[in-house]
Amino acid sequence: MGRTRKGRDISGWLVVDKPAGPTSTAVVNKVRWALEAKKAGHAGTLDPEATGVLAIALGEATKTVPYITDALKAYEFTVRLGVSTNTDDAEGEVLKTSDLRPDDEAIKEALAGFIGDIEQVPPQFSAVKIDGERAYKRARDGEEMEIAARPLFVESLLLIDRPDADHVTLEMVCGKGGYVRSIARDLGAVLGCYGHVRELRRIWSGPFDAGDGLTIAQIEEMARTPELDTHLLPLEQGLVDLPEVKATAEGAVKLRNGNPGMVIAHDVEYGDECWASFDGVAVAVGRFKSGELHPNRVFNT
């Protein structure tokens, strides 16, 4: 018989401004402890040394995580020119160096080649699986692997600062699955000078902004008090990129039971994915077909 997980049945989103150091999983565990929540997860991993927005889903909001994972995200990061490392960031061992330092115009010209639908090879030290094992585990053992390129959509990639000849600060807006470390590595290769990420911050992810996030210190200070609950955002925040339809009273009952239910829809076409609400509360996500929503996710709210 399975063990029952203890905790509160609490649903919603808590936005954290993650500091450098802890893993994303450690932050989730901290939030779950602070809110005494039964269930929690995050929408998009940040490397331990990265900072910025980490959106934590609680309870029923975990069902909306894929929609935040798929949403556009923005990163601000500093690339150290002239040095490549085995991790593609400042934590790794130096592999190669170069005295070449491209000027701003050369960098801007190179950045244009990273915009749009591109192919990107994840870093050797990454969580991608190679024959069922995480790449970083093999890399720690000194194994060098061939990792297949993956598609990535980059909406924009801009040079926003040049602190000195050795460093360039960039801002990137991209889709799901982007590795900023790979961008730094590949930019250095295109420029012929090598490069790695020195600092990385996710400034927003879908509807969530780092500026609205709580620090770990704030979470610890408010832990297990009603004050922390006031910072929760509704689970519907995870659905803002989907069109909303209104369920009828009878339709809401059917949808909550996992069956197609009648909805009132405007500007939604047959087969569109959307979410249904009743009295302002999310009921289900599914496909709109002939006046009904056919659910694939149901919210027990």
Rank of each mutant, 00 (worst) to 15 (best):
W13G: 04
W33C: 03
A184V: 13
V173W: 03
K96V: 10
E269R: 08
L214V: 14
I115D: 02
N296W: 13
T225K: 02
D131R: 05
K129S: 11
Q124G: 07
A139N: 14
D103K: 03
N29L: 01
E119I: 00
D70W: 00
L191Q: 09
S126V: 05
E49P: 12
T85M: 12
F208I: 00
E93P: 08
P260K: 02
D267G: 05
K30L: 13
G41H: 07
D241S: 15
L293M: 13
I147L: 12
S277P: 05
K39S: 04
I107T: 08
K246L: 15
D88K: 02
E199C: 02
T4Q: 13
G261M: 06
G2V: 11
R5D: 10
V197L: 07
N257Q: 15
G206F: 00
L235R: 02
M222S: 08
I160M: 08
V65P: 08
L200S: 02
I56E: 10
G271F: 11
A148N: 13
D279S: 04
K30N: 11
Y136L: 12
G286C: 01
G211E: 07
A74T: 15
A40H: 09
P295F: 03
D279G: 01
L158Y: 05
D164M: 06
D186Y: 05
C193E: 02
G41V: 02
Q124Y: 04
R32V: 03
P48K: 00
K289A: 11
V245I: 06
R297H: 12
A112E: 15
Y136S: 15
P22C: 03
G251M: 06
A71Q: 13
D267I: 01
S126I: 07
V128G: 08
S98I: 00
V240E: 14
D212M: 10
S290W: 06
Q237V: 01
H42M: 10
T87V: 06
G211P: 02
T69R: 01
A165M: 09
R80N: 09
N29F: 08
I183H: 05
V263G: 03
T64V: 11
I219R: 04
P122C: 04
G178M: 06
G175L: 07
A50E: 03
E60Q: 15
I107V: 14
N257G: 15
N86H: 13
T248C: 03
I115E: 08
T62D: 12
L228H: 03
